[in-house]
Amino acid sequence: MIDPGKVLATFCINGEEQACAFVSHRTLLEVLREDLQLTGTKHGCELGECGACTVQINGVPVLSCLMLAVDAIGQQIRTVEGLADGPALHPLQDAFADLGAAQCGYCTPGLLMTAEALIARDPCPSREAIKQGLAGNLCRCTGYLKIFEAVELAAARMRGENPVPKRETIYGS
């Protein structure tokens, strides 16, 4: 039976094409998580308030809970599942793991996608630029400081530098 209430579409997700039939009013978040089982993208409000559902559309961070899936057809969608290339972690993921920037890990995918776009735009972001860039992503565990430090560490590593985290970042003052 052909279901007139559903859209059949092919999405380009993390560089791969994936077809899926879904109810037309579904958000990109719902289609990713529930129809495509890409549950790495999280949800904290479904109202565009928390940033947990951030994915990249053509390299730009977007709240997937506020975007209809039909609007993402034909666009380059990137989720946390597509961040690492092969078995190695992305430098941002490495830095988050090293510094404990992911505690419960729930806001982490959204933060990583936002931060990755930030570094792509500004390879050497200042602390202020990082704060501004991540202001739309809430985190309740870390107090953000380890996240700022992880973004700085990853950005430096991505610039080819070999930074060492400050002693007080890890052991306190």
Binding site: A84, F96, A97, G100, Y106, T108, I170
Partner: peptide
Amino acid sequence: TAIRKVDARSKVSGLTRFADDLS
């Protein structure tokens, strides 16, 4: 020491399975 948490890799990869990720 300051070693990674045992679940750090899965948490930064979106692979940690929270209750709502299950079906």
